[in-house]
Write a protein that binds this DNA or RNA. Structure first.
Lengths: 150, 150
DNA sequence: AAGAATAAAGCAAATTACTTGCAATTGCCA
DNA sequence: TGGCAATTGCAAGTAATTTGCTTTATTCTT
């Protein structure tokens, strides 16, 4: 399948979604969607604002607000445990945790079950040549307590 | 198995590791390890600094540097995509990415293989009552390029 | 047990990466 | 094409670390 045609379609689809959600079609919206689709990897506000296509085209605050709107409309996803803080946990040898996090109240529980990713991890290490592989697995949702208060 | 005895052992083990790594045994080290082991969940610098055991006992900068040392020695683990920035990716319906990230150069590749977590996700949703469950899976390691430059 | 060497702690100042307020523009639909 | 709500720019604000420098406290060695 032709990758270029593919991304073209994706951009059109995304743009259509935005319009349907009541957003205006602006220069920045089009450029930003193009970068996000073309890059196809997690990007920070700054990565986007300083990408060749956007550099000097607009203020960071504007990009920030656009990303926020896109996230609200479900067009993009924000990765990482809450906000902009670093989280630490104890690391016992051969042990790691998977977490279940409430998007609403922020509670974090540790999942005790067997992690299904161990096997995949070894396979990836072998295929990619990456060393010292570790992984993180987090589930995000709305906990029963928070769902009540709707 | 007695949970209290368990955590006691874990603290002793951790303390031993620290000493073996050349760290000094200080009041803060002992308190911090106790909190980390007792809480057994991801904590931010502030969560730790304001925990009942540590509140008012020391400066945040000191806690910060202790966490950094503990991370270097491999006693604790820092969660989340690099640093304290938010990362965004395109979100096409029914599609999500797993990532392979180099701890050294920070490169992020998207893994194209089938994610083994989908099934588990449904099971967790059913068992815990969490709604709108999504997950994030990231692998961290050292890429072949960075491994060379040792 | 005393002193030297060096890790660890405190305090204040700096940085990073957003975030918000407000006035000025600009798409869009009637 | 006029109006009004969505966007933008600029400047100022915040949260969460991070760093520099000086003082204090552990260890280690004798």
């Amino acid at each position: 399948m032709d990758q270029r045609a593919m991304t073209g379609e994706q951009i059109l689809w995304a743009l259509g979604k935005c319009r349907a959600a009541g957003m205006r079609k602006t220069r920045l919206l089009e450029l930003a969607l193009r970068v996000l689709v073309d890059e196809n990897r997690p990007m920070r506000l700054d990565d986007l604002a300083t990408s060749p296509a956007l550099e000097g085209q607009c203020d960071r605050a504007t990009v920030y607000r656009l990303l926020k709107r896109l996230e609200e409309k479900g067009l993009i996803r924000r990765l990482g445990l809450h906000e902009r803080a670093a989280y630490y946990v104890m690391q016992f040898p051969g042990e790691h945790g998977d977490y279940l996090i409430c998007r609403d109240c922020g509670s974090i529980e540790r999942l005790q079950r067997n992690c299904p990713v161990e096997a995949l991890e070894k396979e990836i290490a072998r295929e990619t040549g990456y060393a010292d592989l570790q992984h993180e697995l987090e589930f995000f949702g709305v906990c029963p307590g928070c769902a009540e208060g709707d």
